[in-house]
């Protein structure tokens, strides 16, 4: 009996408990409103339904938040991700639009290749400012955040570049093995990073740099290289997210692609339990954070919340989750529970 209560308490104390509860409540609300919401059917040879839409919609934010988690773990922050997304779309689509044969796979691949190159350069630039020059990350990445959209505008000539290209369209709207390609791409990079950070020393090195850069450097960790690496990775993931976003609408919208996504990504990381002070990070936590935010956005439409109340609704949910997660509130809640019921014996971890 007491062991059951203890383990229930442990579950409730887990830092992902409240985000997962929020996710479940949002999904439940959607099901109550539209009973077929969670149904997955096969349509045109691929899976179709609410959960599949959420997975596909999550892919962009997941990629951006993945890079952001690593950057935040080193005590950094990357505000330039939204602008990098816009640049990725602008470079890729303007090349495809300028080519003679937009339907050819080779053209699409070379366009993607050059966009990746540009984004990697931006990552190197960000990393250089932070790791070598020693500018504070929030300032260093602000440069590209503001200038980046201007660069994207220059590339597209101030227009919204629209193209028709079946291979490029596959990135966001295609299906493979019945699943959306976008979700598969994001899932692949997520698993790859989870494996690399946990099966090699990279994860520990990132955390040590985040906890104390000086001490880790003195202990022989190449802090500069690690920091540089995470900014390049972050720019790369933002670039892939930019492909998915632009492929989704088959247009490069320099002004709106990935606008404010840096804030959503930071929020996802924080909901996932990674501290902005750096150090310990959790990719699974970030995944949960991303799902909460995407489902929240999605539920607005399903629940039919009036357009001018959308921001308020989102804010309330996010504040609630953050409050329930905060150590002070959790401590108070626990104290109250103890006062009413005899406390279970604390088991040392």
């Amino acid at each position: 009996m007491s062991s059951v209560m203890t383990s229930a308490g442990a579950v409730a104390r887990h830092r992902l408990f409240w985000p997962i509860v929020a996710l479940a409540v949002l999904l439940l609300a959607c099901v109550l409103k539209s009973s077929t919401f969670l149904d997955i059917t096969i349509r045109d040879g691929h899976l179709y339904g609410g959960p599949i839409d959420i997975l596909r919609r999550s892919s962009v934010l997941l990629l951006v938040a993945l890079g952001m988690t690593l950057v935040i773990a080193t005590r950094g922050i990357d505000l330039s991700v939204g602008a990098v997304m816009a640049i990725a779309g602008a470079v890729a689509l303007s090349q495809i639009a300028a080519s003679d044969n937009p339907e050819s796979l080779a053209v699409v691949l070379s366009a993607i290749g050059s966009a990746v190159l540009v984004c990697l350069l931006i990552g190197v630039f960000n990393g250089f400012l932070v790791a070598v020059v020693g500018i504070q990350p929030i300032i260093a990445t602000l440069v590209i955040m503001t200038a980046g959209r201007g660069i994207a505008m220059l590339i597209t000539g101030g227009q919204i570049t629209t193209v028709t290209s079946a291979p490029y369209k596959t990135i966001a709207t295609g299906y493979w093995l019945g699943l959306p390609v976008a979700a598969l791409i994001a899932g692949f990079f997520f698993l790859a990073m989870a494996l690399i950070t946990r099966r090699t020393a990279l994860g520990v090195l990132i955390e040590s740099v985040g906890i104390n850069p000086v001490a880790s450097r003195l202990a022989g960790v190449r802090a500069r290289t690690i920091i540089w690496t995470v900014y390049v990775l972050c720019a790369f993931f933002a670039c892939v997210a930019g492909f998915i976003r632009s492929s989704d609408i088959m247009a490069a919208d320099a002004n709106n692609a990935g606008l404010f996504i840096e804030l959503d990504a930071i929020l996802a990381v924080v909901i996932g339990g990674t501290s902005l002070a750096g150090g310990k990070f959790s990719l699974v936590g970030t995944l949960v954070g991303v799902l909460v935010i995407t489902t929240l956005t999605f539920s607005v439409t399903i629940l039919g919340i009036p357009a001018n109340a959308v921001s308020l609704f989102k804010a309330l949910v996010v504040i609630l989750v953050c409050l329930l997660q905060s150590p002070v509130v959790r401590h108070k809640l626990r104290a109250r529970r103890r006062a009413t019921a005899p406390a279970p014996v604390e088991v040392p971890a």
């Binding site: 539209s34 077929t36 439409t301």
Partner: peptide, 16 residues
């Protein structure tokens, strides 16, 4: 915007 039009429509298709 095109992107938000698409997102919202996806929701509509699920809900109605």
């Amino acid at each position: 915007t095109r992107a938000e039009g698409k997102t919202v429509m996806e929701g509509f298709l699920q809900a109605y």
